[in-house]
Design a binder for these strands. Structure first.
Lengths: 107, 107
DNA sequence: TAAAGCTACCTTGTTATGCAAAGGTACAGA
DNA sequence: TCTGTACCTTTGCATAACAAGGTAGCTTTA
């Protein structure tokens, strides 16, 4: 257990970025997202993801449509809006720039 | 002005990482570090850097020696300790892993 | 030689915010 | 009616970074 907290700090702000990436291209609902994240250092819980999805929707980066499940309650399937795609592009570009910066300041 | 705050959030926790990288290999004092950062998205102030340097030294990742300046007060020149080098390696490895994760979750 | 100004060091609030934890509702199928 | 799935909200914490203020020594200049 017990990861170095310094490494954890590096993850701040990434969840939103990753969720946008996961949604981009595919059509997924919350459990799909959690599953994809579970395999990574960004594993998280419903209680974290739902408020994030709601916020992104309020901000107009996502929308969703209800879809029946074969078994169980219906699900919200998410999709990026145009604004969401644009935001994701910004993230990607910024990410690339951070990588450059880090390389350039390296030993 | 006014950068997208979403992008700013991605920077959290990086300053420590970058400072270690800057110090690694060279021998620098605070103003050198500020200068190198100033050219990047991580530009920051004395009031941010000094507490960080003090903390890293308390944690044993850095040490320093006083050195006279040609003009003005003496300066603290910083250097990585063994533990600091190890921490930096961890950061680098983690960083590489984050990049892989992000790629793998991309569209 | 006194004073002003610059450089370098440092500390103490305060803010912002990402994320986790915990608790809660509703509906479907067995 | 019980279990499992899926939705959601509220509360709190930890901490990174900023802002502002403060001390002291060196150099220059009046």
């Amino acid at each position: 257990m017990s990861e170095d907290p310094k490494l954890g700090a590096l993850r701040k702000g990434f969840l939103e970025f990753l969720v946008l990436r996961i949604i981009s291209g595919s059509t997924v609902y919350s459990a799909d997202i959690l599953k994809k994240l579970a395999a990574t250092d960004f594993a998280t819980q419903e209680g974290t993801l739902y408020p994030l999805l709601s916020r992104l929707r309020r901000e107009g980066l996502l929308d969703y449509h209800w879809q029946e499940s074969e078994a169980g309650p219906p699900r919200k399937y998410y999709r990026l809006t145009g604004a969401g795609e644009r935001q994701l592009s910004e993230f990607d570009a910024y990410w690339a720039r951070l990588n450059q910066t880090i390389d350039s300041l390296g030993s």
